[in-house]
Deep mutational scan, measured.
Amino acid sequence: TIDDAFRAIERAIQAENEGRYREALKHFLDGGEMIVTAAEKEASQKVRNLLLHKGKEVLEWAEHLAEWILE
């Protein structure tokens, strides 16, 4: 659900702030994927587009974090 997705993102932010970057990455990926999944089930085109945009933002952040971890 969207609530689960945002809880995962909150955990990711907390982990990132505490320097637990790999854990943060996992939570960002989980949250982003949950948002995209919820968007695919959404009946309203406007809400679907907003959710897809937010999911994409979260997944892009996860990608940047992963690249930073690997440096």
Rank of each mutant, 00 (worst) to 15 (best):
E60P: 00
V36G: 04
A62D: 00
K41C: 10
E57Y: 08
E67M: 15
E67I: 13
R48P: 02
D4Q: 09
F6G: 01
E57L: 15
L70K: 13
E23I: 03
L70M: 10
E60R: 13
H64E: 12
A62F: 06
E33P: 04
A43Y: 07
A5K: 00
T37K: 15
I13Q: 04
E18V: 05
E16T: 15
D4S: 08
A12V: 03
L65R: 00
E63Q: 14
E23Q: 04
H64Q: 11
W68G: 02
H64W: 12
L29N: 03
E16A: 15
Q45L: 12
E18C: 11
L65G: 00
N49W: 08
G55Q: 04
H27G: 14
G55P: 01
L52H: 04
D30M: 14
Q45Y: 08
W68P: 00
T37R: 15
A62H: 01
H53G: 10
E16W: 15
L50F: 14
A39E: 02
A12W: 06
A15G: 01
E71D: 09
G32M: 13
E57R: 10
L29R: 14
Q45I: 13
H64G: 05
Q14W: 06
R48S: 07
D4Y: 07
R48N: 04
R20P: 01
E71H: 12
L25E: 00
R20F: 07
V36Q: 07
W68K: 06
Y21Q: 01
E63D: 08
K54D: 01
E71W: 05
L70D: 08
L25M: 07
T37Q: 15
A24T: 11
A24M: 03
G55D: 02
R7G: 04
E42F: 10
A38C: 12
Y21P: 02
A38T: 06
E63A: 15
G32F: 15
D3K: 13
K56Y: 11
E10M: 12
E40Q: 11
V47A: 06
I69K: 00
H53R: 13
E16M: 15
A5P: 03
F28L: 13
R22V: 12
W61N: 03
G32S: 09
G31K: 05
E18M: 07
A66W: 10
V47E: 04
A38F: 12
A15W: 04
E33V: 13
H53L: 13
E10C: 14
L65W: 04
R22G: 08
E63W: 14
E33G: 08
K54G: 07
V47F: 12
I2K: 03
F6N: 04
W61M: 07
F6V: 06
K26E: 08
A39M: 07
R48V: 05
A39Q: 04
E60A: 10
D4W: 07
A8N: 05
H27K: 08
M34D: 02
E16P: 01
L65C: 04
I69S: 01
A8M: 14
E10L: 10
R7T: 07
D30K: 12
L59T: 02
